[in-house]
Design a protein around this nucleic acid. Structure first.
Ligand code: MN
Ligand code: MN
Ligand code: ZN
Ligand code: ZN
Lengths: 138, 138
DNA sequence: GGGGAAACTGAAAATCTTTCGCATCTTGCT
DNA sequence: AGCAAGATGCGAAAGATTTTCAGTTTCCCC
């Protein structure tokens, strides 16, 4: 369970960490802001401060347990590290998020970086638009 | 000169606007943060407040004169709108920025959005890595 | 099963970037 | 020149995240 992952990450197993990891795993949404996690904790009557949520999420990120995403506007969102990279399609109206992977795009990025002598460390591709539902809402 | 562009944007021609547009046009760097612009103004002994710099840059953005980019870390950066879209390769060590356009990637994005019923409004692709120079610095 | 050093936590204060409120100037037009 | 709309500069405010710090907890070792 969660305890193992936390331990393997080199972190002590504490109530806040177990709770937060649990929320990331079983809360319906895959992409949560620190605030989202905090509210979920509150709704479960957990006495955990927002600063701790940020701290823990950052530690989880450092340990490779979660990925932090910076979409436009406001807060960063966190998601469990699925192990495989993917990019995002975000609806600017309702916030719906669709994940996708495209090897053609990935390959082109590598080629382009190489053309310019860069060694890729990471990349961020986010496509913003209106989802099907939001296009039909007049 | 600058005055025309500002006027055509529907904005009054004021000293701060002319100065800021001038800095964006002739300051060596293509990508500047509001703070960068502010410092440049200070070094030219201009009495312009940081709030005005942000305000003006935001107005320029609204008028289509400049584009605002949100790279990782801290501040947004602004660049003159070249008229044509492009993406960025950013060195995480020295901050060097290389611009590129890849129609294959653009096309795939459109196809992917379509597959998911999205109508694209915008997108952001940033590839982070080490530039040639920074790779050889041990 | 304790003892204790190291790690962790909540709450408040601090940072950092960007935006607001507002009294005071400027610009653009007659 | 005279005026109304629009701009500016300043300080305060806001929003997100981080840091500080004193009290607590975990977990390694005997
Ligand atoms: Mn995702
Ligand atoms: Mn650019
Ligand atoms: Zn939508
Ligand atoms: Zn570099």
């Amino acid at each position: 369970m969660e305890n193992q992952q936390i331990k393997q990450a080199g972190l002590k197993v504490t109530a806040p960490r177990v709770k937060i990891l649990g929320i990331l795993e079983h809360s319906g949404k895959r992409h949560l802001s620190a605030e989202d996690v905090y509210k979920e904790l509150l709704s479960q009557d957990e006495e955990i401060g927002l600063a701790t949520v940020y701290r823990v999420l950052t530690q989880f990120e450092g340990a490779g347990l979660v990925c932090r995403r910076h979409f436009e506007g406001g807060q960063s969102v966190f998601e469990l590290n699925s192990g495989s990279h993917h990019d995002h399609l975000v609806c600017i109206k309702c916030g719906k998020i669709v994940e996708f992977v495209d090897s053609l795009i990935e390959d082109r990025q590598i080629a382009i970086a190489a053309e310019h002598g860069f060694r890729i460390e990471d990349h961020s591709l986010v496509v913003y638009g209106l989802c099907a539902g939001c296009q039909n809402a007049r």
